[in-house]
Design a protein around this nucleic acid. Structure first.
Lengths: 105, 105
DNA sequence: CAAACATGCAACCTTTTGGTTGCATGTTTT
DNA sequence: AAAACATGCAACCAAAAGGTTGCATGTTTG
């Protein structure tokens, strides 16, 4: 996993509108564009661009069904994001432990 | 924790340069501005702006020491980011389990 | 005290982002 | 076949991001 790909995932999550979209998708069934675009406070086309940003970062996948397009969360991206942070925290903790040992001497 | 604050944390992590800065800080001791600015491929003042972005998102804290300014990672922000994703994943898993039960009937 | 060092701040520039509107196109429904 | 629906695409715009350079300021060091 490249740094850049990880950064793109975080970047995709780094916007209130996109965060809400992701949250809605984690909540239940895959939703279609139209439904997802509602109640975001922006136009349908505006929402579409945000969804496209999520697609580009591979946080979300599109599946055309008839005249609709279903939007589905990609759990892999979430995991990669969480793992990255977890690894940072592991290093952090390791250092804290070393510091603790040092002061205990 | 507001959606906006979380989005700001992710946004702060959503850039290769800032991600590298965070990674360096998780690694060891708090570094000062000058050291942190090296080998990022941008000017010192450019790096400074990126560090400021991390400060604004509370991913990092500044501590002036003499003529230097130490930069320290804030583990709380990391945890909040990871927790947010973990909660999304929990909902996701819950749904998968419900689906599994349904198909097993 | 002078030189070297670490940093801050402001002005400026280009590209990206986040949003809009208008119109075109394919798909159901009646 | 016509109407209604779901979506796509392009042009456009203002604001924010990411970077630069130049200069000012406080702090060590010799």
């Amino acid at each position: 996993m490249s740094q850049l790909a990880i950064a793109q995932i975080f970047k995709a999550l780094g916007d209130p509108v996109r965060l809400q979209i992701v949250q809605r998708l984690s909540n239940g069934t895959a939703l279609c564009m139209g439904e997802l675009s509602k109640d975001l406070g922006i136009s349908r086309q505006g929402a579409r661009k945000q969804i496209q940003a999520l697609v580009s970062a591979k946080v979300v996948q599109l599946h055309p069904v008839g005249r609709e397009v279903k939007v589905q969360l990609d759990a892999v991206a979430l995991q990669q994001g969480r793992d990255f942070i977890a690894r940072l925290e592991a290093q952090w903790d390791k250092r804290l432990q070393a510091l603790k040992q040092f002061t205990e001497q």
